[in-house]
Design a protein around this nucleic acid. Structure first.
Lengths: 207, 207
DNA sequence: TAAAAAAAGTTGCAATTGCAACAGAAAGAT
DNA sequence: ATCTTTCTGTTGCAATTGCAACTTTTTTTA
């Protein structure tokens, strides 16, 4: 999305309410705090949204890539555990506040208008990602989860062959299933001739 | 959201690109067609998003209530099955096209500006709902799914007691688990003293 | 380039879950 | 007021899954 890029270049002569910050790998980008309503846009880099539960267990709740939009504004109230965004590579992140989107700056600057359009666009893309994940997670067996996800990737690439955008370990997290159980099912699908796999390239053999 | 209501009242002297339509129970509101990019807002009533798969099986993918925003613009490309929105009560629905949101009407009418803000707001609320469901679905056991969902409802109501917004049958669908298995687990939670339940009112007994 | 860390791949076993098939209660429709 | 449909509640059993505990391979870092 090149608009986002243009946005960044305009920051200098744009509005002071928007901040761009740089982070190095493993730094904390933000912590989700109720009612702050921060909205973040990942300009470059990748990050994980991590939950530390009461027992101190780490859990990767979500993963963010270039042009993803995230922040408290997108999350339900969370009382008994903390959500933290930690970058997994060096990052550039744009920060803005939900309220500021409405209180447009006095000058009615072009920057603010562009920003506004971009946010809606990014938010819609975010919704599509979420709906994809919900569709996959709502399948009841690992086999169905895999085949549903593969089918979506295949549609996106207009091809029976595609490359997984994840390591297999991360794929298991994305599907919210035990990795070893997923490996077993992947092997079954191969043995039964539904798919073939080399590295993280998958080919669908059915239909 | 009273803004949405005001929006509707302004339609007459507003922009012709936006349509409001009435539907009676069981009518089809829309079918998701790739690239049409329709955005719909439920003014009053409820509806189900239904998938018919290749075997002709019905599957309720999502449920929409008053002020929910939905439509193709929110959904991943879907090649081999059809998504249809069918109302479960009489409905009033607002229709607009994704592209029209950007091509603001020439008069730069107040209506269009209000609409624009509202859509972002509704889309954000939608994201929160989706994240809630993802959080719940990503738990691996029925017990964890139930407790996670209950905990979110409890936070929302600021109370250990709350009313389920679903019938138990629909709750099982929302959690994407077998209803009888969910009933069994619900019974276990009661027997083990974690929760109490009367009708569809739940009370958390722990912590 | 050697050491360390992360990812991939396997397997046995116990626990959880889905499925099928009921019966009774509650809610809606005629 | 009765009929019909939907919802709730239960159970046995087989299938799926998670967990734990490994080894091997690949990638990253010092």
């Amino acid at each position: 999305m090149s608009e986002t890029f243009n946005l960044i270049n305009n920051i200098q002569n744009g509005c002071s309410r928007v901040q761009k910050k740089h982070f190095v790998k493993n730094e904390t980008i933000t912590t989700y705090i109720q009612k702050r309503n921060q909205i973040c846009i990942m300009i470059t880099g990748t990050a994980d949204l991590i939950r530390y539960d009461l027992n101190g267990n780490k859990d990767i709740v979500d993963k963010f890539n270039e042009n993803d939009i995230f922040g408290e504004a997108f999350y339900p109230v969370h009382t008994n555990n903390e959500l933290t965004v930690i970058c997994t590579t060096d990052c550039d992140v744009l920060f803005l506040l939900h309220d500021d989107i409405y209180k447009k700056c006095k000058q009615n600057c072009k920057f603010h208008n562009t920003l506004f359009s971009n946010i809606l666009e990014l938010t819609l893309r975010n919704a599509i990602h979420q709906n994809t994940r919900i569709e996959v997670l709502s399948k009841r067996t690992i086999r169905e989860k895999l085949l549903t996800y593969f089918s979506i990737l295949s549609s996106k690439d207009f091809s029976k062959s595609f490359t997984l955008p994840f390591t297999l370990t991360n794929l298991a997290d994305y599907l919210s299933v035990d990795r070893s159980a997923m490996m077993r099912e992947l092997k079954n699908l191969i043995d039964e001739g539904f798919i073939s796999k080399s590295g993280n390239r998958i080919k669908l053999l059915y239909k």
